[in-house]
Amino acid sequence: MAWSYRKRIKIIPGVHLNISRKGISTNIGVKGASVTFGHDATYVNTVSGRHKVPPPRPVKSVASPAVVTLPQGNIFSIAPAEITNQDMQGVKEAILSAHQQRRELNHDLQQIKLALKGSQSQLTLSYVFLYGLIVPSIAKKIKERIAAQKMAIEEINQELEKSRMELDISFDADILQKYEAVKAAFVQLSHSKKIWDVTSAMQENRRVTRSAASTVVDKREVRIGIQSIEDIYANVEPLWFKNANGADLYFYPGFIIMYDTKDRFGIIDMKELQFNFLPVRFIERGVVPSDAKVIDYTWDKVNKNGAPDKRFRDNFQIPIVRYGAITLRTAAGVNEEYEFSNYEAAELFSEAFIDFQKVIKGGY
């Protein structure tokens, strides 16, 4: 390896989002090309002209539990690579370019670190066996090589910092307040004592089980929080939802990244997301989380009228608690559901998110 290391890196296109009451304008930092989202249609601007393409079909977001039904069967999304629409393809390509370049640089970095370790060992041995002292030029050349290798490592680290897709997001002042409300509510929601990813829901045969539950769900405890993607440098950190049976979700203002691995991910325009909130009555056979509220009681074995089934001698009462549930769906195949022990925090986040999503859709 030549120790006058000079790897030419390409500039990763940056992405600028401007969020206003007219909707979102998205500009990808390649000369002669940008994508702008407006009220009535999407326009792709190129050096050869301006072409109109059909607007995305509007998706209604609701918070009323009266019009929301729990999905049945396994609850999971399709492979993330299959969900990116045409408008988001340029953003995805910029992220992939950043990842490819970072992978190549990290490979070079490991090779040089390995060579540096060999040079340092060689210098030590030159002194142990005295030939480095007897012939000073030998030690001098090794030291020069070590200095060049250390400089190469420093240069690669600097190039790694530049090899990210830069995402710059700007807001109108009043819309920024709406997004700050979303983020604050999300942080509060992340402090829920229990957070679950619901992975399946099946109808219960109550005649057989004598249970008060009409639906049996399988859910796994997960975490949410503020967490970034390595190949993206953004001035606004995304809201992260851990996914127990698929790709994690990263919510940026304007779009959502379903992230499985650095090579397998998809990007969803936030306008396409159907975001719903509903209260859930859950028969809690485990420990009731300290931030959940017991709203009723039932029996382990019950009759249709809710009275205890007296045929079972050791029948006992079970608390019914109220949890908050959020469902995330798109026509392209996103299908996720989360439950939170803190109902009020889930409701507050949902209200703030739906309010912000109206801006994304150009609703007001």
Rank of each mutant, 00 (worst) to 15 (best):
V334L: 15
A98C: 05
S61I: 12
D260V: 00
N305E: 11
Q274D: 08
G324E: 07
I360S: 03
R57Y: 13
R102A: 13
A292T: 11
E82N: 12
N243P: 03
H39C: 02
W3L: 15
S350M: 05
N74Y: 12
I175H: 01
I224R: 01
Y252G: 03
L114K: 10
S290R: 11
D248E: 06
E144F: 01
K7Q: 13
V288I: 14
V236L: 05
A352D: 09
M202E: 15
L70P: 07
K193R: 10
H51W: 05
I11D: 02
S350E: 07
K92E: 07
L105C: 04
F37Y: 11
A345F: 13
L130G: 00
K304R: 12
D172E: 15
P319T: 02
S192F: 02
I138E: 04
E144L: 06
Y343A: 06
K113N: 13
V47P: 00
A247G: 08
Q188I: 05
A79Q: 14
K140Q: 10
V47I: 14
E344H: 05
A185D: 09
G29E: 11
F356Y: 14
F171T: 06
V236E: 15
R207L: 13
T69V: 10
L109M: 14
S190C: 10
E161C: 04
Q100I: 00
S34R: 07
V236Y: 11
R207N: 14
A234D: 13
I320D: 01
Q120I: 15
K301W: 11
S25M: 10
N27W: 06
I78A: 10
L114M: 06
T84Q: 07
V35T: 07
T330A: 07
S34C: 02
L116Y: 03
V359H: 02
K293G: 01
S48Q: 14
D296W: 03
K150I: 08
I229M: 06
K194Q: 15
I360H: 02
M202H: 13
Y179M: 05
K178M: 09
E339Y: 12
L167A: 01
V67I: 09
N18S: 15
Q100V: 01
I142G: 02
L328N: 03
L189C: 03
A331M: 10
N243A: 10
E82R: 12
Q120K: 14
G333K: 08
E336M: 13
M88I: 08
N276W: 01
E230G: 00
H39Y: 08
Q149T: 05
A201V: 15
F282P: 00
W299I: 08
L70I: 15
I257M: 09
A292F: 04
D269E: 11
E154H: 12
L348H: 13
S61R: 12
G73L: 08
L176H: 06
A94N: 02
F241M: 03
K162T: 05
E159S: 10
E180H: 09
L109Y: 09
R8N: 14
K117P: 00
Q227P: 00
A345N: 12
K113V: 05
K140R: 11
S64L: 11
L160W: 06
K361N: 12
W240A: 06
R207Y: 13
I226E: 02
A2R: 12
R329L: 00
